[in-house]
Design a protein around this nucleic acid. Sequence first.
DNA 1: GTCTATATTTGGATAGAC
DNA 2: GTCTATCCAAATATAGAC
Lengths: 189, 189
Amino acid sequence: MLTTPTSTKDKLVRAALEIGAQDGLESATTAAIAARAGVAEGTLYRHFPSKDDLLIEVYRGIKRRIFEAIIDGEDSDEAPDARLKRVWRRLYEAYRADTKAFMFGQRFAESALSKREGGAAHEQISTAVGRLRRDGIERGLFKDLPSDLLASLFFAPVGYMLKSELNGRTWTDAELDAAAEAVLDSIRA
Amino acid sequence: MLTTPTSTKDKLVRAALEIGAQDGLESATTAAIAARAGVAEGTLYRHFPSKDDLLIEVYRGIKRRIFEAIIDGEDSDEAPDARLKRVWRRLYEAYRADTKAFMFGQRFAESALSKREGGAAHEQISTAVGRLRRDGIERGLFKDLPSDLLASLFFAPVGYMLKSELNGRTWTDAELDAAAEAVLDSIRA
DNA sequence: GTCTATATTTGGATAGAC
DNA sequence: GTCTATCCAAATATAGAC
């Protein structure tokens, strides 16, 4: 999923991602990015109109990758709660497999740049979850909560637990399952 | 709670808080902070050794204020689940009453500065919640989840819902109660 | 303690040779 | 398309007068 970049443009994107994820967006200067990508500073401007546009491109790539990881292999024959639980696990594991993407996304969302590119990392996934919610409510499986409240309960622990993991905590498979189950418990009728 | 600053030092702290909360930490430059505080740029260095130290001081003040708002009037005679629910509401409302503090805190935690001052905004509150957890598990009220997993389920929706509110959504009192109840459901045995 | 003025560094971006 | 060299603006921090 994260292959070694070949083109200069890809090298720049990768370098910006790594620096921003590790040291914060304020450390992702043109000098630092170019050095890490192994190209000259001026070369950056052959591929992007500005440094900010490069960072926005990084963010868009992240959203694309995560979304693809989630929808991959969705099975629509199951009950809404089982599906929702699997979506939660998939989302968690997609970010866990790409912690740089997660860190960069978090930082991007808190930066001034998020005003140019919406901060919400998973609009597309949200609509998928929204459909499952409606289905679940109709079948009497879920509480009749507003969709954005349900989304808060559903998505929030993902980011929080990923940050713990970046601080050294490793969640076992059983713990992740318990977490997904707890999230479901919070919305079950 | 947020009185008008009197001393120059307070004015600087307040100015940095407001700019960082509104436009991101990268916008909180020495020039901008001094201008907003109504003092000269050089004056900042009479009160703080560096700009970063000023920002860290802002963050410490926030943690102090929020903690005081939470512990204020805790009642230890009730059952753990009722108490936990109230703590959740208090925490939410403390940040809601001080949205600048919340925004600044979020941004600070994602910045490179958080390496100098720990990113976790509520260690003290966590220990209080930890005590309630143990009590609840002993009485068979709560699932026997690791304390940090419980903390994730408990704290994560607070930040997520506050962000929604900053984006224009206003949670009604009934919705906040439903959220607190849902959080409790996620950890109840 | 505060101001004005300034030194110093760094960052974003461009020009022009190859 | 990439590099070297450079410009310009902005940001942190200091010096010295009041």
